[in-house]
Design a protein around this nucleic acid. Structure first.
Length: 242
DNA sequence: GTAGAACACATAGTTACCTCA
DNA sequence: GATGAGGTAACTATGTGTTCT
């Protein structure tokens, strides 16, 4: 129906904008709208140069292939929760009259879904229906798969970023250790304070300051007004106490 | 022009099933 | 064979933008 298609296009535009705003896992563009950036939805916001998440799925596909050849397998069944009657969407029960089954996608289905996901992280209605037909799945299943796939991508990205930050933290910690050691080394030196360092004021501050060694040695030498009062600012006195 | 209902779809979190070690 | 962990399909709850009235 043309009306629905038009609405889909408009909605997808809005969704695309919202997703970009959210800074979500993908810079998505949906449907027929031109995609502004890279072709793969996985990496764009990953600026770390780390492995693509696509690889995380390959193992699953391989594993699934061991027991399923061409047709999606259906097994078990779980009690349906009667929520979706109120939902506008069609549930599995409503569609085929049977209880919802847990299926495993075949290797071929997974591969094609992955390919499509690399092209578009989201699908518009037409794409979803076409893909569902192609895969012999229900559109709802394709939709769910893409939802879960996006979630997995985002999770992987979060893990990668977490690891990156952990390494950054460790680097900074090491740098901090090095600088502290450098401070200790400098403290051990009998160096002369520069003259631009002004003396502190107040009794509390005085506790963390000591007389400049050069002034101490000089005694009453120099200006009678300034020399005896020149003090050496010891920025390490406080930290050294800790 | 604006408000609100309806709609479709997004994400986040959860549940239940399946596979494998 | 039992079991726990991990993966994932399917679900629920909630939020958002668009369209229509």
């Amino acid at each position: 129906m043309e009306v629905n298609d038009d609405r889909d296009d408009a909605r997808e535009t809005a969704l695309s904008l919202r997703l970009n705003y959210d800074g979500g896992s993908s810079h998505l563009s949906t449907g027929d709208h031109p995609r502004p950036q890279a072709a793969t939805p996985v990496e764009p916001s990953l600026t770390l140069g780390l492995p693509s998440t696509a690889c995380s799925v390959s193992g699953v596909v391989g594993r699934m292939s061991s027991s399923h050849s061409v047709i999606s397998s259906i097994s078990g069944g779980r009690p349906s929760k009667a929520k979706r009657e109120n939902d506008g969407r069609i549930s599995d029960e409503e569609e085929d009259g049977a209880a919802r089954k847990k299926l495993r996608l075949t290797k071929e289905q997974s591969a094609l879904l992955e390919d499509k996901f690399k092209e578009h992280a989201t699908l518009n209605t037409k794409q979803k229906q076409a893909l569902a037909r192609q895969l012999n799945l229900r559109p709802r299943q394709v939709e769910v798969w893409f939802q879960n796939r996006r979630a997995r991508t985002k999770l992987k990205k979060t893990e990668v970023e977490c690891e990156f930050l952990r390494k950054c933290c460790e680097t900074l910690r090491e740098e901090n250790r090095r600088l502290l050691q450098e401070i200790q080394d400098l403290k051990s030196l009998d160096f002369q304070a520069p003259r631009y360092m002004q003396p502190p004021r107040g009794a509390a501050a005085a506790a963390t300051f000591q007389t400049c060694p050069s002034c101490k040695n000089r005694g009453e030498g120099g200006s009678p007004a300034a020399a005896p009062k020149t003090r050496f600012f010891n920025p390490f006195a406080h930290s050294a106490a800790n």
